[in-house]
Design a protein around this nucleic acid. Structure first.
Lengths: 205, 205, 205, 205
DNA sequence: AATGAATGAGGTTTCATTCAT
DNA sequence: GATGAATGAAACCTCATTCAT
């Protein structure tokens, strides 16, 4: 419970944000189901009724957290410009990986929510997640197809390349936020880029 | 509700299995939280009290389903023998991918449970998942380190290779079971193998 | 809280009835809004969950009480037979008044519910009440029109006669159950019959 | 929400009346329990806090509406003067019926509140209603007893005559305001008077 | 062993009322 | 005086689990 004197004078948007931020932490810490409205309002230092003044219900605030995250991640991605590459395409790809990884690591609580709590919540939420990942995969897929035409992406089914790239990044992030692993951001990006560039199997067939 | 006459005469183990199988379907269909004990016993054609004769509680049966799956997946993996390779190493690796993918696709309901419902369930369950994936990653990691010594795996951090491989496979499986995509098993395995072998980026740095 | 030993072994219908009867008393005593589910289950000697096993919600049990009362009152009414009067029509009318009054007085708790608690509950319930009184009035109206054709009912708008008769009976019952007045049933019936027969104003116009 | 500019400059009494009138409409439209303070202040075009500057609480404003109505109805009644009848007694009785019916019909919203919403609200309110109807019945009773001494009212229990008269009038009013029936005022009065004068049963006993 | 009625803890939500500005 | 954001008591209902038969 914070000092009430610091809480007065917040305008609607600020109060909303205050509850939202605290809810995010509570969801990250306890998980969606274990997080009770009581935990959230206690963390935010507001009364239970106040919560319902700003959010429809528990699911709504959770959905908003996830939506905000989707928006933030979407904004982090730079569309790869293959037409007039002021920088090399490789740099652009690397830059995107770096931005995504950075966005995910700068707020591990939210990343944990995205990769753990939001998964398997209910059918509707599953759909939302799937749609998001589909849109990401599609974006990637298009870039890859384009890259294939220019000979900078190997031939093969770009949809698979996209899914596997997505999965590789998700898994590293999952391990990092869930196990509290402490890899340097730069290191993570390098490894991903190296993996995408050449795989690792060097074996005869 | 099944014909009760078919249910008599089941011995303890059979009755247990009967409930377990039905529960698996219900969990896969509805998700852990939306799956009510009522749904499970209705599907299994037993009384509510009977459920508790065979299982401690709802979590216990869910945990058992996941544990069985872990065991099944573990059994599917063949330890890569680099010492006395009766077959080429590449074949062994490919064989492993094929077995895992096959095990996951032959029972999509359970795969969905593993990749969606079991995620973010609660802190203890998260730990269980992490441990499983860690053990898989470790196994893979060891093989890769061994492979690096023999020059059949590229240099680099094998832990990352392991995580990314795991993530790539998980994501494809997730997409397949959640979106009902219908890729042929063989095709999936080929794409994964190709990805691990050479990545896809072919660009100057 | 009753002796639990007396409560076991009730079959579904009996348990239902047990809750229903106790709810009726609680509603009568406290009124619909002041009657809490807790009061009802305490009176019935069952757990809160048990209540919801038998009734959808508070409104549903209240509606059922009212519906039962409507049915009971409807059954108490004997259709006046003007075609082949084995008894005089007067006797039949008197008999009906007697039956209705008797039905209302033998269960004052329910009558209080009908005439007080059920009134102004909400729009849907108002509609239900109006429909019931409308059907009663219509029945009465038809008898009166028929009576007018036979010269045993004075000329005039039978709908008004019906409404006013209904109102007169309702008001007496209301006063009796709400104020605990203790008029003998027979006396009440006589006064009503006398009123319907001749009014009371004996004045020049 | 009215134009705020029209609301400034109201003095205390006007502001009070403004809230009161709007509350009356809201209560009539929604019923006591379904009428929220929010509905009332929205209708009155004032802030929620302002409501509590003028009224103790929700019950208080409702009680005041009902009290005002009681006062208005009481004022409408003319005491029947049997001592020095400047007009015939019949005319005075008829006049009273006419005044009451008129008072009830000129403000159907309030009449609906009185005959529906205020009924069965809670024990204290029931008592208030009973007291009011008792005072009305007593007044009527006294007139009738007096009339019996003068031979212009039939012999019999005047308390019953009073109750039944009250009930007859209430029921017609109830039907009119609840069902939106559109009987001419004059017609209603005639039918009541006719009923009180001679009843309608014309049958042998 | 099987049953299913009964339990009650625990969570969500509403809304009349308060109070700092 | 007026405002409306904040409050929190109170009530409802669900559903995993127990237990008498």
């Amino acid at each position: 419970m914070r000092d009430p004197s610091t809480l007065v004078g917040l305008d609607k948007a600020e109060r909303r944000q205050q509850i939202l931020s605290n809810a995010r932490e509570v969801f990250a810490k306890r998980g969606y189901h274990a997080a009770k409205i009581d935990d959230i309002v206690a963390a935010a230092g507001v009364a239970r009724g106040t919560f319902y003044l700003y959010f429809e219900d528990k699911r709504a605030i959770f959905e908003e957290i996830v939506d905000q995250t989707f928006a933030r991640l979407g904004a982090a991605v730079m569309r790869v410009d293959t037409e007039h590459p002021s920088r090399t395409v490789a740099d652009q790809v690397e830059e995107n990986i770096r931005r995504i990884v950075h966005a995910l690591l700068e707020d591990p609580a939210t990343t944990k929510i995205l990769l753990s709590d939001a998964v398997g919540l209910d059918a509707a939420f599953d759909q939302k997640l799937i749609s998001f990942y589909e849109s990401v995969a599609k974006l990637l897929d298009e870039s890859l197809v384009d890259g294939q035409e220019r000979g900078i992406v190997a031939p093969g089914d770009a949809r698979f390349f996209a899914m596997m790239t997505l999965g590789a990044v998700k898994e590293i992030m999952y391990q990092v936020v869930m196990r509290g692993l402490d890899f340097p951001e730069e290191r993570i990006c390098e490894e991903i880029f190296r993996f995408l560039s050449a795989g690792y199997l060097r074996i005869e067939r």
